[in-house]
Design a protein around this nucleic acid. Structure first.
Lengths: 343, 343
DNA sequence: TTTGACGTCCAAATCGATTTGGATTACCGA
DNA sequence: TCGGTAATCCAAATCGATTTGGACGTCAAA
């Protein structure tokens, strides 16, 4: 009803209207002006469905949000969406969001997007060591960009943050404070990011310290810290704890308070993510900041290139994170070194 | 390439294939079985674009996420998305997410969705007292459901939480503890929810106590509390502070700690939202819980009805919130009443 | 005058699913 | 044998934008 309507109003063909609006040069300037004027007048908007049908593309990209208990309030995805949105708008692509409980459900969601051609490409976050979503997409040769690496042997496009280097640096910072028993409350190691963070901690430490691995929520951080305090022999209790996420760190800090201990004074605590909240814990949390927004924008760029046919080879980027020193860490209790050493 | 392909393989017409798969009863059972078998074999999936073009619908609904500094980490929207997702999946509708900085940008985003027929309906959250998005959608007679009321005079569909009653009850709880100077750190009153929360506080109080109104972030809660502590005459300092959101409350609690005061002991503090975090503040935060997920599911139901042509009249629901008593409030300092009174 | 070369324009096909308005066949009762 | 009725099936139109493969005139060069 629409290109046709302009055509009828002007007494010219639909073809010419289409070509006038699309900027082809076989349209007389005068005709083009008429077409544009009329299009403006009736506030013409191309019918997306028709265009998609004809072009054979969905003109959209997809993101699958993990949902379900303990998942849905992870600020990470919201930050990512917020960054992806404007980047896509510039490209006139829609953002399709699906939710799925992690696990079997998740693969179903990806399959749905691919098989029903709902989107032209996918942005995939929180990669796993063995990631069936990645193998699925590679099998189908479907364009996607991941946030994070994976053990998959075939090359795929990703932007990752160097959690290993960041955690190594954080651990070294704790060592330089004089700590000798440095624990890690890690996320489940099936997550690639958790694996890297552990690797950094291990690399700095040489011989592993106490380790707990949990789904990264406040509650699990709380429990894990309580467990560390209870399980380890009193004289071998960690004097410093590195947490794989700020949510874990917040729970851990609470467990410390519960036990009459104070982060920074009695036990050094370092988080990861730099949630806005980290400034407002008591004490403010020393943590590691990741440029999620910039990474998301870069991922969109890569995804567009992939959709355009560019190969994934060479689309692997690992960006540095940086440590934000606040007050939750410092030298072991009973030491005289100044606090809040800039790392 | 697809209904046609099945038709060709079976030597029957596209019409019959379509009708067989759509369940019409003018297809012989044997034929239908053949069609279904072949469709299965080639993993037939209807082309969405073609279907949308033909049906004249987008088969999608839209949500506009506020993005930008201080916004993007608001857990509210993620919870809402997580609840909307599965509800839509059941209806085979897509979820289109757009981001916009609040303000002029936001209206542009809505206009975009409507004018380009990107979606069949919209879910609109965090309503304002004067909400141009609502008037715009009403002007266009475009189906939408809001989370929250507005001063708009024309009826529209919404699900709201009774923040007024909740805040009245919270204030009464503080009064019953013996507090007499009860402050409110509210969100900006241009937000309808903030207006209601203030109204509840006022209703319980009779004569207004100290009031601060800010964009609801941790940082602003921190500043507002510092301001309350600094500005009010020492003997008229509030002994209890009601916060319009948990994020504000977390910042406020931090400001208290900064001033050497402890929430629950020196100043009673009540939040609103029951973020998972609220359990892990120190002390755990007494707060008000809203059934966002259930509300979101109900909003989807309503939206489907609106898209189906049902009038908005009668689609107005106000649900109760409930207070979760933890340790951040109690009687004024120097009182003997037992703490953590169950409200 | 004829031949090309442009400059403009357009009819028709195409993308794939849906729907309208019959067409065809078999079978029944009269 | 003929009209009527189900039971099946299908050709063609439709949704709106895009694209292919020309058509038609005009004008300059030959």
């Amino acid at each position: 009803m629409s290109l046709a309507r302009i055509a009828r109003a002007l007494g010219i063909s639909v073809t010419t209207v289409s070509r006038a609006l699309a900027g082809y040069d076989d349209v007389a300037p005068a005709t083009r002006a008429l077409v544009i004027a009329e299009a403006d007048r009736i506030a013409y908007r191309p019918n997306e469905a028709a265009r998609r049908l004809r072009r054979g593309r969905a003109e959209a990209i997809g993101v699958v949000l993990p949902s379900g208990p303990g998942q849905f309030d992870d600020p990470f995805f919201l930050r990512m969406l917020s960054a992806i949105g404007p980047a896509l708008e510039a490209e006139k692509l829609d953002l399709l969001v699906t939710t799925a409980r992690p696990g079997a459900d998740a693969l179903r969601a990806y399959r749905h997007l691919v098989e029903n051609r709902k989107v032209d490409g996918i942005i995939l976050a929180r990669t796993r060591r063995q990631d069936e979503r990645i193998s699925y997409l590679l099998d189908r040769d479907f364009p996607f960009v991941a946030h994070g690496r994976s053990l998959e042997s075939r090359p795929f496009a990703y932007v990752d943050i160097d959690g290993e280097a960041a955690c190594r640096a954080a651990t070294e910072r704790l060592l330089s404070f004089g700590h000798t028993r440095i624990a890690l409350i890690n996320a489940l190691p099936l997550y690639m990011f958790a694996h890297h963070r552990k690797a950094g901690w291990l690399a700095a430490l040489g011989t592993p310290g106490p380790l707990r691995e949990v789904e990264p929520t406040e509650e699990n951080g709380f429990r894990a810290m309580q467990d560390l305090l209870a399980t380890e022999h009193p004289h071998e209790r960690p004097t410093a704890v590195l947490c794989a996420t700020d949510r874990i760190a917040v729970g851990a800090m609470h467990a410390l308070a519960h036990a009459g201990l104070r982060a920074g004074r009695d036990v050094a605590l370092i988080g990861y993510d730099d949630l806005p909240l980290a400034t407002y814990t008591d004490p403010p949390l020393t943590t590691i900041a990741q440029p999620i927004e910039r990474a998301a924008r870069r991922m969109v760029e890569m995804l567009l290139a992939r959709i355009g046919g560019a190969p994934a080879e060479g689309m692997q980027e690992i960006w540095p994170a940086r440590l934000i020193a606040r007050q939750s860490d410092g030298p072991p209790a009973g030491t005289d070194t100044p606090r809040n050493h800039q790392g």
